[in-house]
């Protein structure tokens, strides 16, 4: 042993709370172990450049990707009530409060209208960080109102699902949001307006069994988990080994439920290509950003 790493001064002790950490979020490590700088990641549509892993993102990022610049948020002040005085290990009201503080969001979906490639589009986007993207009365109502807005203004509607399913703390009120949103989508269909459902990682439970599967086209991102019952439940109930890639977007497409899987970098372009084609409008082109 050489002396160069010998501690010269004795008795140095930094307490844990005083230790300097690298600031959080400077780096991102993908599940395959690839490391990428956060800035780099944001520039790459939150997709890890080396392995194309699509990082879970929320409404803020999706709005940023899809809208040209500014957009108007709809019904942003709707917040949850606690009609059942629900309590599990925590009171629902406390859970709501904690979620709001942690995320800065008011509930698990944000809805907005703005220009995407120069034309107005209504987008509803779920946030998984807010109680697992669970669907309660606020989620249902905001989606319903966004659909109403699309009908009123005769605009296409894009729903970005990212959800563990219905919100247990609102019990059957949550369940009926499946009925409410699906009924609203029937009205949208009757009005002849396009509905695009983007299923992102994860899209499960009551979300899958309602609006997520009802698009004129259903699309997804590579590798996203999409299913009704979660993989663990299916495995425990059936006692069977699950097939490879069970409930991945690729699996779900192969089984006939997705029209295509789109890399996030092409999302805006492909969604608008579909809209132009299905509405028989001239094709818009996205101005290519210079490649560095």
């Amino acid at each position: 042993m050489t002396a160069w790493f010998k501690r010269k001064e004795k008795g140095i002790q930094t307490r844990t709370e005083e230790k300097k950490d690298t600031p959080k979020g400077l780096w991102y490590k993908s599940p395959t172990g690839k490391i990428v700088e956060s800035d780099e990641l944001a520039k790459n549509f939150y997709v890890s450049p080396e392995d194309d892993y699509h990082v879970r993102i929320g409404s803020k990022e999706y709005f940023e990707i899809l809208f040209d610049d500014k957009f108007k948020e709809l019904d942003e002040d709707l917040t949850a009530k606690d009609p059942l005085k629900f309590e599990d290990t925590k009171k629902y009201t406390d859970r709501l409060k904690a979620a709001k503080e942690k995320t800065g969001l008011k509930d698990a979906v944000r809805t907005a209208v703005g220009k995407s490639m120069g034309k107005e589009l209504v987008v509803a986007c779920m946030d998984f960080s807010f109680i697992g993207g669970s669907m309660g009365a606020v989620v249902g109502e905001k989606i319903a109102r966004a659909i109403d807005h699309a009908r009123k203004k005769k605009l296409p509607f894009l729903m970005i699902s990212k959800s563990g399913g219905a919100r247990m703390m609102e019990a059957a009120h949550s369940l009926m949001q499946m009925a409410k949103t699906s009924a609203k989508l029937a009205q949208l269909a009757d009005a002849g307006l396009p509905y695009i459902s983007l299923c992102t990682d994860p899209t499960t439970g009551g979300t899958t069994a309602s609006y997520a599967m009802l698009g004129d086209i259903n699309i997804s991102e590579p590798g996203a988990l999409i299913g009704f019952a979660g993989p663990r439940i299916v495995k425990d109930t059936t006692g069977k080994e699950l097939p490879d890639g069970f409930q991945t977007a690729e699996f779900v497409k192969e089984h006939g439920f997705l029209d295509f899987i789109v890399h996030r970098r092409d999302l805006k372009k492909k969604v608008n290509l579909y809209i132009d084609l299905i509405t028989n409008q001239p094709l818009r082109t996205l101005e290519e950003e210079p490649v560095n």
Binding site: M213, I217, K253, E254, H255, G256, F257, L258, D259, F260, K270, L273, Y274, D276, L277, I278, T279, N280, P282, L283
Partner: peptide, 28 residues
């Protein structure tokens, strides 16, 4: 302009039958 769409919404995406949207001239 061709955008291929997949799946029968029931059991599978059949590779022997293809379909999608496209423009011929100005018409979709």
């Amino acid at each position: 302009s061709f955008l291929e769409l997949h799946g029968d919404r029931t059991v599978k995406d059949d590779k022997a039958m293809i379909g999608g949207l496209g423009k011929i001239g100005d018409q979709s």
